[in-house]
Simulated scan of single mutants.
Amino acid sequence: MKVLQLIDSLEPGGAERIAVTYANSLCDPLEASFLCTTRAEGLLKGALKDKVGYLFLKKKRTLDYSALFRLKRFVKANKIDIVQAHTTSYFFATLLKLIYPKIQLIWHEHHGNRIHTKGSDHKALYWCSKFFSKIVVVNPDLKRWCETNLATKEVIYIPNFIVFEGEPEEVQTRSNIICCLANLRDPKNHMLLLKAFRRIHEAHPDWKLQLIGKDFNDNYSEGLKNFIKEHRLSAAVTIEGSISAVQPQLQQATIGVLSSSSEGLPMSLLEYGMAGLYPIATNVGYCREVISTFGAVVESNNEEALTTALRIAIEDRTWRIQQAGLYTAHIKKHYSLEGVLPELLKIYKN
């Protein structure tokens, strides 16, 4: 069996990391594994294993027929059986299905905020869903939404997973750093974290905050930069931008925060577990279920609650270190490749 992951770009992001993780993880259990990025390459290209077959289409527009037929030739030449289209690449994948019906098409939906929309808002997606063999989603709420609003008969919940490579660095020797691994865009609500950190910094000036993720240099990021400047936090808060290898950066830190207003099953929380961080997240998407009892979950857009969770984690070092270790073990047990791969292979083989 041969499977191709289809994604719009390889810029660091949750869906993009999952597409790369799938492509890498399927090299050995399947006959062959492939990845195609349609619009753009990015830092994550360097994370692909040599054994992964790779194609960059350089698609210029929504209906790029030249790119579409290049993809068809690639799929046909490599005798690919299944195309797994991630997030917004479903439309291009459906066009491929129309001109090459031989493939099985799976749509993999990551975006948790879709559950807050109506099915009538997604007419193109509904039409495309008639051609999906299956839909894979990252949390049960998305499963219910797809079952209610789309035409695909089989919708399967498969949690995101992470591939552990060795043990995290010793927690006791880490710096007083809080990390937020999230691209600088609206659903991630970095402003909430900045407001909470401003209050924390007054009592704990030795603590730093690192924002790791793509800076789109738009109004959203400009607002964050203005806040940092206005409140004289430039020495304490750094915007790191996109990083291909996030684990070395995270393993210098102590606390990992996700202050989003909506999520699916965020890869950032899995990365925090792999890095040995104490996790704090807002109660959106599947964050509460991922963190379980091994960190703090606060209500979305609640500055006071987030400030309190940060203060408790900072001031109780022994408890924080203990919880971080338990969280790493929890993620390894429930969200690692070993736990998810058998279920994933069943989907392909059935």
Rank of each mutant, 00 (worst) to 15 (best):
E202V: 14
I228S: 11
F227H: 06
F227S: 04
R199V: 03
F216K: 11
F227M: 04
F227P: 03
E230C: 02
S234E: 09
D215A: 14
A236P: 01
G241Y: 11
I212S: 02
Y220Q: 02
G213Y: 06
E230H: 00
S234W: 06
A245Y: 12
L211S: 10
L209A: 02
H231Y: 02
E240K: 11
Q247M: 10
I243W: 00
D206A: 14
A236K: 01
L233P: 13
D215P: 10
L211F: 05
K214G: 09
Y220N: 04
K229S: 15
I243C: 01
K229Q: 13
V237A: 15
D206C: 13
L211I: 14
L209G: 01
D215K: 04
F197N: 07
F227Y: 15
A235F: 12
R198G: 04
Q247R: 10
E230Q: 01
F216T: 13
N226I: 13
D218I: 13
K229V: 09
A235G: 15
R232M: 10
F197D: 04
H201W: 01
W207M: 02
K229F: 11
W207F: 03
S242Q: 14
G213R: 06
A203S: 14
I200G: 04
Y220R: 10
K229D: 08
I200S: 06
Q210R: 13
R199D: 09
K214W: 05
A245S: 12
K229R: 12
P205T: 03
L233E: 07
T238R: 15
E222I: 12
S244H: 01
N226H: 08
Q247T: 14
R199N: 04
I228D: 03
S242R: 05
V237S: 10
D215T: 09
P205K: 09
R232C: 06
K208A: 07
S244L: 05
R199A: 07
K214F: 04
I239N: 05
E230V: 03
K229A: 07
R198N: 14
G241H: 13
S242L: 15
H201R: 03
A245N: 15
E222Q: 13
R198Y: 02
V237E: 08
D218Y: 03
I200R: 08
R198Q: 13
V246K: 00
R199E: 11
Q210V: 10
